[in-house]
Design a binder for these strands. Structure first.
Lengths: 135, 135
DNA sequence: GTAGACCCTGTACTTAGGTACCGAGTCAAG
DNA sequence: CTTGACTCGGTACCTAAGTACAGGGTCTAC
């Protein structure tokens, strides 16, 4: 099982080295084992983990929320029912984001067609298109 | 056509007064007409506008991107083709966000069922569930 | 006509999420 | 066995997006 130095991990994940250390401090990455010298040795799976963090951020999740997602598991500290409740809460949140995103997408599509067939144009065509969708 | 003071607008939109002024400075809200006294008189439509800004932020759009969405329109400065291109770019962005949200939702659903039927649990069940979705 | 709530501008502070820099130690290729 | 790239921890700095005064004017209900 190969491991990565912090620089390799950062390069592969497309973030920078200090960001990796920052995430480690924040608890988003597990503290990796160290060589004698103190150099960190990251598992390759952390590349995917960093990728997820980046994409989740682009969806408006805070690092705290991302941490919660990543720590959804059953272990001595957390019961199955507990995890289940937290998963449901996240599902609700995700569902709301999806709904809003759909509205925005519909509005954009409407704009895309109407901006050629040029009907009456209000103050803000985008918002007009947006609430033409079922608010 | 009734108008709102900055305090009324802020209250109705669920943001605070300095935020409204901040958005005005950033150009996300049009500069409203003023009374003799200098008091701003906002149109009611700005309530919806602020609502959209809030929801779009929760989807990871920056204020700059939100400004671009709100200013999608054809006018003397922008041709129809220009708007069309920008709409398409936004649609691409929105599509990517949707795809990632769907993956997250699927992963959460899988967690919700698997956390009762307790199979083997890896380091991070959530990420395991996530890439069990079509990457 | 005045008290309390509200608004004005301007400037300063805060929080989240990084980024940069420092001096010192480590690694690997020639 | 040295040199250039990399890593270490620590501290300081930065940007986006607010949020909080301060000092002064305005509104409205009594």
């Amino acid at each position: 099982m190969t491991t990565l130095t912090i620089g390799q991990l950062a390069r592969e994940a497309g973030v920078n080295v200090q960001t990796v250390r920052y995430y480690e401090r924040r608890g988003l990455l597990a503290e990796p084992p160290r060589r004698e010298s103190g150099y960190r040795e990251f598992p390759e799976s952390d590349v995917a983990r960093l990728g997820f963090i980046r994409r989740a951020q682009a969806l408006g999740f805070t690092l705290a929320e991302i941490g919660e997602l990543l720590s959804l598991r059953v272990d001595p500290q957390t019961t199955s029912a507990d995890v289940h409740a937290r998963v449901e809460a996240k599902l609700k949140d995700v569902g709301e984001k999806m709904a809003e995103l759909k509205r925005i997408r519909s509005a954009l599509k409407e704009l895309a067609t109407s901006c050629k067939s040029h009907g009456p144009v209000g103050e803000c065509p985008f918002l007009d298109a947006l609430d033409a969708q079922g608010n």
